[in-house]
Simulated assay, not measured.
Amino acid sequence: MGIRSFYLVRRLLQPLLAVAGVVFLTLPPSQASAVRHDLGDLQQQVETFLERHYQQQDVERLEIKVGSLDPRLVLPACPQPLVMSLNDSSNSGGNLTVQTRCEASQSWSIYVPAQVSLFRPLAVASRNLVRGDVVSASDISIEVVNISQLRQGYLARRENIIGQELQRPMNKGEAFRGSILDAPLVIKRGDAVHIEIQAGTIAVNSTGIAMANGRIGQRIRVRNSQSERIVSAEVVEAGKVRTSI
């Protein structure tokens, strides 16, 4: 290929390469082999960088696959250690890119694709569960799960799950998440309830009828059976609410 043809091809390809987000340095074949950075070494350095980063996340197993680089990519050999950065604020892995930079006089930058899978013991459903089920210890098993494929908010500890009520169905093997759990109903609308009325340091007991469903910690409306007044009271346990005057 003549010099004129070489630069014509270069001008035609540059817009396409820019779209890919990669800097390609095209040099005459006689020079490329002398200055080209080893792409295999670059990929290995990216893998080592990712291993060191994610091994700090207390995972049981780590799998990393660095994407292939176009063999036509020509980068000047970098005489100093490459600088790498990663945009993964949740540290959950998945499909990502590592910005790799050479900050020598012939500087360059490239985004290297990679796939990271992080495996960690998590609490999962031991059987199919339906909405409204109150989770018991037998409903939970601990399995090593690829957390990179999960949404955030998953739960690892049994004690944070047992006694909670499901807000939607779960399949066997599915990880528990905080967003699908809630405290169970301990009072239902129309239930007779015990009312503890706090007046300063004095506590007065009464009875009433719940006018709404309630979970521990929630406030519900209750009709006092003696005064017929409707009050707002906090649910403290099954069949008991507390209010103050």
Results as ranks from 00 to 15, higher is better:
Met1Arg: 13
Met1Thr: 14
Ile3Val: 14
Phe6Ser: 09
Gln14Leu: 12
Leu16Trp: 09
Leu17Arg: 13
Ala18Ile: 03
Val22Ile: 13
Leu25Ala: 01
Thr26Val: 12
Thr26Ser: 10
Ala34Val: 07
Asp38Ser: 12
Leu42Asn: 00
Gln45Phe: 00
Gln45Pro: 00
Val46Arg: 01
His53Gln: 10
Tyr54Ala: 03
Gln56Ser: 12
Glu60Ile: 00
Glu60Met: 04
Leu62Arg: 07
Lys65Trp: 04
Lys65Asn: 13
Leu69Gln: 01
Leu75Ser: 02
Pro76Gly: 03
Leu82His: 03
Val83Asn: 03
Ser85Glu: 15
Leu86Gln: 06
Asn87Leu: 11
Asn91Met: 08
Gly93Ile: 11
Gly93Val: 10
Leu96Asn: 09
Val98Met: 04
Gln99Asp: 07
Gln99Val: 08
Ser109Pro: 00
Ile110Gly: 00
Pro113Met: 03
Ser117His: 13
Arg120Phe: 06
Pro121Lys: 10
Leu122Gly: 05
Asn128Glu: 13
Asn128Met: 03
Val130Ile: 13
Arg131Tyr: 01
Ala137Ser: 15
Ala137Glu: 15
Ile142Asp: 01
Val144Phe: 02
Val145Arg: 14
Ile147Pro: 12
Gln149Met: 14
Leu150Asn: 08
Gly153Leu: 02
Leu155Cys: 09
Arg157Ala: 15
Arg158Tyr: 08
Ile161Ala: 08
Ile161Val: 09
Ile162Arg: 11
Ile162Pro: 05
Gly163Thr: 10
Gln164Leu: 14
Lys172Arg: 15
Gly178Val: 06
Ile180Thr: 14
Leu185Arg: 08
Leu185Lys: 10
Ala192Asp: 12
Val193Asp: 06
Glu196Asn: 03
Ala199Glu: 12
Ile202Cys: 00
Ile202Val: 13
Gly208Arg: 06
Ala212Pro: 02
Asn213Val: 02
Asn213Pro: 04
Ile216Asn: 09
Arg221His: 14
Ile230Val: 15
Ile230Trp: 05
Val231Asn: 09
Glu234Ile: 05
Glu234Asp: 07
Val236Trp: 01
Thr243Lys: 01
Ser244Met: 04
